[in-house]
Amino acid sequence: MKDTSLFHKALTISLEEHPYIEDFLNSFGLDVEPGPNSLQQYLDNLDPDKLEDLGINYQQLCQSLNDFLAGMLTLKEPLDKVDSLTIIGGRDKSGNAENIDLVLKPGEVICIVGPTGSGKSRLLADIEWVAQGDTPTGRKILINNQVPDSKWRFSTEHKLVAQLSQNMNFVMDLSAEEFIRMHAESRLVTNPEEKVAQILKQANQLAGEMFHPDTPVTSLSGGQSRALMIADMAILSKSPIALIDEIENAGIDRKKALDLLVQEEKIILMATHDPILALMGDRRLVIKNGGINKLIESSEAERKNLKSLEELDNKLLALRNRIRSGETLEEI
């Protein structure tokens, strides 16, 4: 889908309409300024020796620019709606059939439980890869009850799955605000400033301790980082499926975090051993020996227990806050 007219408009117009062209050229070490010349003329006038010094040639640059613009157009297209995700069982590590057809709907939370090494990550990976019997488990994944387009596998613009891993470390030398803005820009959202403000606000509501937008991401506490990433995933990510690898207990309101994700009409799969999170889910998949061993529906009795578990949890949270503010715990 090549927009050839773009190459023949004056740079003053094309750079205004597509500001990411300038950033693209900068990333190859090239400068560009608005002017009456067209993008095509600009490319044709580039000195081949200069290009060679920059480690690129004319053909490759034009090819990359075309691919880049095509990618940007895809990013602007609306995402195909996902109304259901079906997991058709394969086999466990010993070759026993899983005998399961599981249909998941947006807004649903499925917990995945099982010991380390039991195959939780493989299940999440099968979904991300939209497996078609071509992974070690032989599972098949359907989207909207159909074999999905294989574009889901490699698309960076339209990822089917956003994954929130246990690790929330940052290595980039940016403030929380700068970092989220950079993420928003990379996703070409239409109103980045508004989204950034919204994410920071939500993150602060989830985190036990407030943080300022100027705080470097590398200085955020574990809870603050998790809160920021969950808010970012809920508000910025277009992926219809969220995979969560355990929301750790410390410093974050887990119920609010989950509610926020559910609100965005995502299908949520969460690997967890936390009783509160597990009971918040609608169903639980038990993984054993690499296979789906059992499906448990959260029962009425369990839901009742959830209340008392939450009370316990709130009590602990209150104690934690008292310790934080320098109180003693002689009376609890």
């Binding site: 956003a162 690790n167 470390n169 940052f170 290595v171 980039m172 993420h183 990433m229 970012d232 995933m233």
Partner: peptide
């Protein structure tokens, strides 16, 4: 070692 957002960026 890094977060989802950092991987995406």
């Amino acid at each position: 070692i890094v977060s989802q957002a950092e991987r995406e960026v």
